[in-house]
Simulated assay, not measured.
Amino acid sequence: MNQTFKVTGMTCGHCVNAVQRAILKTDNTAKIQVDLPTGLVSVASSLPRSTLVAVIEEAGYKVTSP
């Protein structure tokens, strides 16, 4: 299932990598696309939205509605 999140706090490529690593640590088959300028993160994963939000926020970023 493809889900899109608005993530605030990402300011550079290292931030993008941190978000991607956090998601992949929980679901190593997830497909992730990050648009840094807009803060949109699209994730194709079978994990529930609440789990993905928790993983991103545990990595130090804030998730708001897209």
Score class of each variant (00 low, 15 high):
1 M>L: 11
1 M>I: 11
1 M>W: 12
2 N>L: 09
3 Q>G: 03
3 Q>L: 14
3 Q>K: 15
4 T>C: 00
4 T>W: 03
5 F>Y: 15
6 K>N: 11
6 K>C: 01
7 V>G: 04
7 V>R: 10
8 T>Q: 12
9 G>W: 09
9 G>R: 05
9 G>F: 11
10 M>W: 14
10 M>D: 07
10 M>I: 14
10 M>F: 10
11 T>H: 14
12 C>Y: 05
12 C>V: 04
12 C>H: 05
14 H>V: 01
15 C>S: 13
15 C>F: 07
15 C>P: 01
16 V>P: 02
17 N>F: 03
17 N>A: 15
17 N>K: 15
17 N>H: 13
17 N>C: 07
17 N>Y: 05
18 A>P: 01
18 A>W: 03
19 V>C: 06
19 V>G: 08
21 R>N: 15
21 R>T: 14
23 I>W: 04
23 I>V: 14
24 L>Y: 07
25 K>L: 08
25 K>W: 06
26 T>H: 13
26 T>V: 15
26 T>E: 15
26 T>L: 10
26 T>N: 10
27 D>H: 01
27 D>R: 02
28 N>A: 13
28 N>M: 04
28 N>Q: 12
29 T>F: 09
29 T>K: 15
30 A>P: 09
31 K>F: 03
32 I>E: 03
32 I>G: 02
32 I>F: 07
33 Q>I: 05
33 Q>A: 15
33 Q>N: 13
33 Q>R: 11
33 Q>H: 11
34 V>D: 03
36 L>G: 09
36 L>F: 09
36 L>T: 12
37 P>G: 00
38 T>S: 13
38 T>V: 00
39 G>F: 01
39 G>L: 05
39 G>I: 04
39 G>A: 04
40 L>A: 11
41 V>I: 00
42 S>D: 13
42 S>A: 15
42 S>Y: 04
43 V>Y: 08
43 V>C: 08
43 V>F: 04
44 A>W: 07
44 A>H: 13
45 S>K: 01
45 S>R: 06
45 S>P: 03
46 S>V: 07
46 S>C: 00
46 S>A: 13
47 L>G: 01
48 P>L: 04
49 R>E: 11
50 S>Q: 15
50 S>Y: 07
51 T>N: 08
51 T>G: 02
51 T>Y: 00
52 L>M: 12
52 L>I: 14
52 L>T: 05
53 V>F: 08
53 V>Q: 13
54 A>C: 06
54 A>E: 14
54 A>Y: 02
55 V>K: 12
56 I>W: 01
56 I>F: 06
56 I>Y: 07
57 E>P: 01
57 E>R: 07
57 E>T: 07
58 E>V: 00
58 E>M: 09
58 E>K: 15
59 A>V: 09
59 A>Q: 06
60 G>C: 07
62 K>A: 06
62 K>Y: 03
62 K>S: 08
62 K>E: 07
63 V>Y: 04
63 V>M: 10
63 V>F: 08
63 V>I: 08
63 V>E: 01
64 T>Y: 03
64 T>P: 01
65 S>G: 08
65 S>N: 10
66 P>S: 10
